[in-house]
Amino acid sequence: NKFNKELQWATWEIFNLPNLNEEQVKAFIDSLRDDPSQSANLLAEAKKLNDAQA
């Protein structure tokens, strides 16, 4: 299933962003679980936040 692979990839990527704190990671993962179809958008937002906090 396409969404499942995207969800797994986005989850792994978010867990490995070095500049997000635990609460931010949890919030993004919760959002992914709530709406897996938004995984690409949520990953992009997480990466933006990660870069901003570098």
Rank of each mutant, 00 (worst) to 15 (best):
Q24R: 01
L43E: 01
Q53M: 11
L43K: 02
E22P: 12
L49A: 04
P36Y: 04
N19M: 05
Q53W: 06
N50R: 01
A46I: 02
S37Y: 06
N50E: 01
P18E: 09
E13Y: 15
L49H: 03
L17I: 01
E23G: 09
N50K: 01
A44Y: 12
R33A: 14
L42V: 14
I14R: 01
N1G: 08
E22Y: 13
S39W: 15
A44M: 14
N1L: 03
L17G: 00
L20A: 00
Q24F: 02
A46E: 01
Q24K: 01
L32R: 00
F15L: 14
I14W: 02
N50I: 01
A44V: 08
S39Y: 15
P36F: 06
L42W: 08
S31W: 14
D51E: 12
N41H: 13
L42T: 09
A10Y: 15
Q38W: 04
K48F: 07
P18I: 07
F15N: 10
K2Y: 12
N1E: 12
K48Q: 12
A54W: 09
L43I: 12
N1W: 00
L42G: 01
A40V: 13
L42M: 07
N16I: 06
E23I: 12
Q38A: 15
K5M: 04
P36N: 02
P18Y: 10
E23L: 10
A27Y: 15
D51Q: 13
S31F: 12
I29M: 08
Q53S: 05
P36G: 03
Q38I: 06
N21R: 13
D30M: 15
L49N: 02
Q38H: 06
W12I: 05
L49Q: 05
W9E: 12
L20G: 00
L43S: 02
D35S: 08
E6F: 14
K5E: 15
D30A: 14
D35Q: 10
E13N: 03
F3T: 11
D30T: 14
K26S: 09
E22K: 12
N1I: 05
A46Q: 01
L42Q: 03
A52S: 10
N16L: 07
F28D: 00
N4D: 15
F28P: 00
D35Y: 07
R33K: 12
I14M: 04
N1Q: 06
D34L: 15
T11N: 03
D30H: 14
V25K: 15
N21F: 08
D35I: 04
I14F: 03
K26V: 06
E23S: 14
S39P: 04
L7D: 04
A27W: 15
W9H: 09
N41P: 15
L42F: 08
V25I: 08
N16R: 06
F28Y: 07
A27Q: 12
A40M: 14
F3Y: 10
L43N: 01
Q24L: 03
W12S: 05
L20E: 00
N4T: 05
N4L: 13
I29D: 01
R33T: 13
F28W: 03
A46P: 00
Q38D: 07
P36V: 06
N1D: 15
L43H: 02
S39A: 13
E13Q: 14
I29V: 07
E22V: 13
D34I: 11
T11G: 03
K26E: 07
L17V: 00
L32E: 00
Q24D: 03
A27F: 15
A54L: 10
E22R: 11
N19K: 03
N21L: 11
D51H: 09
K48A: 10
D34M: 14
A27R: 14
N19T: 03
E45H: 10
I29Y: 04
L7Q: 06
